Amino acid sequence: MTLISPAARDALQLWLDGQRALAGASENTITAYRGDVAEFLAFMTEHHGAPQGLAALERIGVADMRAWMAHMRGMGLSARSLARKLSAVKSFYRWLAEREGFEPTAVLSTRAPKFRRKLPRPLAEDAAKKVIETVEHQSQEPWVAARDVAVVTLLYGCGLRISEALGLRGADAPLGRSLRITGKGGKERVVPVLDAARSAVDAYLDLCPHPKEPAAPLFRGVRGGALSPRIIQKVMARTRAQLGLPSTATPHALRHSFATHLLSAGGDLRAIQELLGHASLSTTQAYTAVDTARLMETYDRAHPRA
Rank of each mutant, 00 (worst) to 15 (best):
F115Q: 07
L41S: 01
L276R: 10
R180M: 10
G18F: 14
P192T: 03
G183P: 03
P229C: 01
D148L: 13
L262M: 12
R169M: 13
D206H: 12
H48T: 05
P251C: 11
E58W: 02
S26P: 06
S87G: 09
L3D: 14
D206I: 04
P209D: 13
G101F: 06
K114I: 10
E100R: 14
T284Q: 15
W15P: 02
A42R: 00
L16Y: 03
L227F: 05
E274C: 03
A253N: 02
L166Q: 09
Y287P: 11
R116V: 09
A293E: 14
E188T: 04
V290G: 09
H303D: 06
T283A: 15
F219C: 02
L179F: 04
Q285P: 06
D126M: 11
G157T: 06
A106W: 12
T2V: 12
L119Y: 04
K187P: 13
L3C: 09
C208I: 01
L227V: 05
G176Y: 09
F92I: 06
L154Y: 02
R73G: 13
R238P: 01
P229D: 06
V62D: 15
M1K: 08
F219P: 01
R80M: 01
D300A: 13
R189V: 01
R238A: 07
A79H: 10
G101A: 10
Y287E: 13
S264I: 02
S199R: 14
T292N: 15
P51K: 08
L3P: 02
A279P: 03
I30H: 11
L295A: 15
T292H: 15
R270E: 14
V149L: 15
G76Q: 02
L82K: 05
G221H: 10
A265D: 14
K234G: 12
D64T: 01
W143E: 14
P6W: 15
G221I: 02
R230M: 11
P174E: 11
L16K: 07
I4R: 07
R294Y: 08
L275I: 04
A79K: 07
R117S: 11
I4S: 03
P113S: 04
E46D: 06
D202M: 06
L57E: 08
A237F: 00
R161G: 04
M236K: 07
Q140S: 13
A25W: 00
G225T: 01
H278R: 12
H278C: 00
D64L: 04
H278D: 00
H252A: 08
P142N: 08
L54K: 12
R301Q: 14
R121M: 02
K85R: 14
R66W: 00
A25C: 10
R189K: 05
L16G: 00
R180D: 10
G266Q: 13
R147S: 03
V144L: 15
V222I: 13
A83D: 09
A196W: 05
P122R: 08
A112K: 04
G18I: 02
V151R: 14
Y93Q: 11
W95Y: 13
V89S: 14
L281G: 11
D268F: 07
Y93M: 10
M75Q: 15
G35A: 12
E188W: 05
A196N: 11
G18T: 02
F258R: 09
L218A: 00
Y287S: 15
E46V: 01
S87C: 08
P251S: 11
A7R: 09
T250A: 11
D291G: 06
I162T: 11
R223C: 04
M1I: 03
L179P: 03
I162W: 13
A83K: 04
